[in-house]
Computed example of a mutant assay.
Amino acid sequence: MTSAVKKVRKAVFPVAGLGTRILPATKAMPKEMLTIVDKPLIQYAVEEAREAGIEQFIFVTGRGKGALEDHFDIGYELEAVMTARGKSLAPLDRTRFAPGAIASVRQQSPLGLGHAVWCARDLIGDEPFAVLLPDDLMVGSPGCLAQMVEAYNEVGGNIVCAQDVPRERTSSYGIVTPGASRGRLTEVKGLVEKPKPEDAPSTLGVVGRYILQAEIMGVLETVGKGAGGEIQLTDGMAEMIGRQPFHAVTFDGDRHDCGDAAGFVVANVALALARGDVGPKVRDYLREHA
């Protein structure tokens, strides 16, 4: 890491969304607490951030999201019962954090992803930070954010995670106007939010991982509403292009859109098959019912 590149120590998790694509499952439960095999989505994202060296985890929450904070608190009653019964507490190890490592702030109104990130401005201060969308379950080794941090330490500035998407689906993504490419690193010349296929500058779509400089908070404060009448993070990032280095990293791994019912089921199957303890039974079932 060069002396000019500040370490990425903080991560923002925008978790105030309602999860309307998978109702009624999310009527009373935060979508981020839905489990893939035996861990909630939020834990996969937090573990990915931990692997990448993140030290402070900032949840941007809304009403009814208390279970997210409880999940990463100490469960005294649960631990007492497990201990009394001679059960190992090891399954809870990755849900424990040092005091102050988890912080939360409310997004009172659903004004978009850019607004959710902006809500964390006072906790971010003047530091670079990561943003992770738990809906996007990224499976790879090393993890997605660790791959991005490696690139960030080399080039600095702002980094987005990207993948090639079908042209007919560009209207569901922020799309990159690409510059020079080197390996999995592509210079970002422009960003457009959810363009029509015929208007898309490429098929390189931004997915739910970002490393951003603190200056974007000032941009988000004034950028105004964009696509869907919301304050779009893509619009804020587009304003940063030309001011600071800006690159896209193509993730070496698999992405599952768990905010969608089909994607959620596929993620459960994929991660179950990769597990030595549950994979054989799931594989046998699929073989019998294919």
Rank of each mutant, 00 (worst) to 15 (best):
S3K: 15
A4F: 09
A4I: 13
R9I: 01
F13L: 13
P14T: 03
V15Y: 11
A16P: 02
G19W: 01
I22Y: 05
A25F: 15
K27W: 03
L34N: 01
T35N: 04
V37Q: 03
D38Y: 01
I42V: 15
I42Y: 04
Q43T: 03
Q43G: 02
Y44K: 00
E48Y: 00
A49D: 13
R50L: 05
F59P: 02
V60F: 08
D70K: 08
D70T: 14
I74Q: 03
Y76K: 14
A80T: 13
A80N: 12
A84E: 11
A90L: 11
P91K: 08
P91F: 06
D93V: 09
D93G: 04
T95H: 08
I102W: 02
Q108M: 09
G112S: 13
L113H: 13
V117L: 07
W118F: 14
A120L: 13
A120D: 12
R121T: 07
D122R: 07
G125L: 11
E127D: 15
F129V: 09
V131Q: 09
V131A: 09
L132G: 04
P134W: 13
D136K: 12
L137S: 00
G140C: 11
S141L: 00
G143D: 03
C144L: 06
E150N: 06
E150H: 05
A151K: 01
N153D: 15
N153R: 15
G156L: 05
G157H: 07
C161L: 15
Q163N: 08
D164Y: 11
P166Q: 10
E168Q: 10
R169C: 10
S171R: 11
S171F: 13
G174E: 00
G174T: 08
I175H: 05
V176M: 05
R182W: 01
G183S: 00
G183V: 00
V192R: 02
P195K: 06
P195A: 00
P195T: 12
S202M: 07
S202Y: 07
T203G: 08
V206C: 14
Y210V: 03
I211V: 05
Q213E: 15
V219R: 03
G229C: 13
E239G: 04
R243V: 05
Q244S: 14
F246G: 08
F246E: 07
H247L: 02
V249R: 05
T250I: 13
D254F: 10
V266Y: 03
V269A: 15
L273V: 01
L273P: 04
A274C: 03
G279D: 02
D284Y: 10
R287I: 11
R287Y: 06
